[in-house]
Nucleic acid binder design. Structure first.
Lengths: 154, 154
DNA sequence: ATAAAACCTCAACTTCACTTGAGGTAAAGC
DNA sequence: GCTTTACCTCAAGTGAAGTTGAGGTTTTAT
């Protein structure tokens, strides 16, 4: 059966990250721990889910700052419930949909623009930042902003 | 008609970046210029395409180092031809396809995993980095590597 | 009981991708 | 012709996301 209490080393090994990274994440307020009698960190299994989410988010270009804000919707006085994580998941999906749409447009643009060889300064959308590429928004989208843009009901 | 020779300021304004960024990119070997009689930088219109590609690549999490390597397939003794850009574009599309697939799996995973509320340490793919999520590769994919993985013919 | 492994703090260092500033030259506009 | 704007170099600074190291304590294994 899965243990109910974890040490830094165990968490680090399980997640494939350094102990120092766990210290760093804690210092940044992304994860939480309590201390045992000998001042060593102890974690609830919940921390593994948080770290999984952090790593997944980073892969799609979300900053720790934004992840932290997303986590602020989670309760810090009690262990997050299924509903808590579902709400976070829902917000994330909107963001991911946006990112996917961006990449698809970018891919098509490359095919149709670089690939076409037009190299026309006046009509090529790659040359003109206010055209197709620009209207997709500027890169890694804030969770909050993605939410706002989609007009999410709370 | 479009000008054939550009100054730093014009390029910067056109691309929506700082002059200092152009200096930096040049220092990093991402773009090239020649100097006029008064030692000021002059650019071919080609530089706009390079910068567009740099910005697009960064949005999807590609580092300058990787972009530089991708650019190394472009000729530096002559202005890149349509074919040169097409080759680069082809490599990119493979990379983008990979990124898109990653995001789609991540989205579905969030729906089916965080959303489901299973919170099971032993069966949840989010908790187990060697499962579904991990097999997607580790984040921003090298252009070269994306190529290799896809078994691109040269 | 003791040695090895794991943990602690705190400060400093690293890499990436730029930005800022000082001190000076060149080009453009009136 | 002069002044404003644009440009030059070089060095140092910034912020994000950690990593490394020193010096010391706690836990675990034998």
């Amino acid at each position: 059966m899965a243990e109910a209490i974890w040490s830094v080393g165990k968490v680090a090994k399980r997640c494939g990250i350094n102990v120092s990274t766990l210290h760093f994440y804690e210092q940044q307020g992304l994860i939480h721990s309590w201390r045992n009698a000998g001042n060593q960190r102890r974690y609830k299994p919940e921390v593994l889910r948080r770290i999984s989410v952090i790593k997944a988010a980073q892969k799609v270009g979300v900053s720790l700052e934004e992840i932290k804000r997303a986590f602020e919707s989670l309760p810090n006085n009690r262990t997050p419930t299924v509903e808590d994580w579902q709400q976070l998941s829902k917000n994330w999906q909107q963001m991911l949909d946006g990112r996917i749409a961006y990449l698809q447009k970018l891919r098509d643009n490359l095919a149709g623009c670089i690939g076409c060889g037009c190299l026309s300064m006046t009509s090529c959308p790659l040359y003109n930042p206010d055209d197709k590429l620009a209207e997709l928004g500027s890169g890694p989208v804030l969770l909050d902003r993605a939410e706002q843009q989609a007009g999410v009901d709370r």
